[in-house]
């Protein structure tokens, strides 16, 4: 039943795919590009508009690793757990990050500043262990450097 009005942004996305069967994934793609994740409120609107049960939408969102259900956070921290980084102590770095930020991998800090994620090999094993924040790569990171790296971004946020 098309009762609820869609927000303009979402309406544009849905219109783009209207009438094409099997477009749910493409619509979700576009929504994630817009917001950085798929908000529940948007899924509920979509379910109503497309007459696709919310349960089906969540089956798709949670099946594919690509889709996120939470806001992405201002900065993305990726800890490499590839073989070389792992052997050079990446799990210590991960534990340190978890302790300082108070979040587990795959989640975002309460203030929305950092999202913590684990990745498999960033392709620069010579620099192991590697931590990447947004597009900047930190090489040969040690546990005691973790707090310093984070403070760069915290200070930057405080200035703004």
């Amino acid at each position: 039943m098309r009762e609820e009005k869609l927000s303009v942004d979402i309406e544009n996305i849905v219109k783009k795919w209207e009438g094409k069967k099997g477009s749910l994934i493409m619509i979700l793609h576009d929504i994630q590009n817009l917001y950085g994740y798929v908000p529940r409120a948007t899924s509920l609107q979509l379910s109503n508009y497309l007459e696709v049960p919310l349960a089906r939408i969540y089956e798709v969102i949670t099946f594919y690793h690509f889709f996120k259900l939470e806001p992405p956070g201002k900065h993305l921290i990726q800890v490499c757990m590839g073989t070389a980084c792992y052997l050079k102590g990446a799990s210590d770095l991960l534990h340190e990050l978890r302790d300082i930020l108070g979040v587990r991998e795959g989640t975002t800090t309460k203030d929305g500043l950092f999202r913590l994620e684990v990745v498999r090999c960033l392709g620069c094993c010579g620099l192991a262990p590697v931590v990447k924040v947004d597009s900047k790569v930190y090489s040969k990171v040690t546990k005691d450097r973790v707090a310093d790296i984070l403070s760069e971004y915290e200070q930057e946020a405080a200035v703004k």
Binding site: L54, E59, T62, F63
Partner: peptide, 19 residues
């Protein structure tokens, strides 16, 4: 009714209401 569905996949698959 569509209250239940399988969420996630592989070893993490579980049945649950959506979200």
């Amino acid at each position: 009714v569509w209250a239940l569905s399988f969420l996630q996949r592989g070893i993490k698959t579980r049945f649950s209401p959506a979200g």
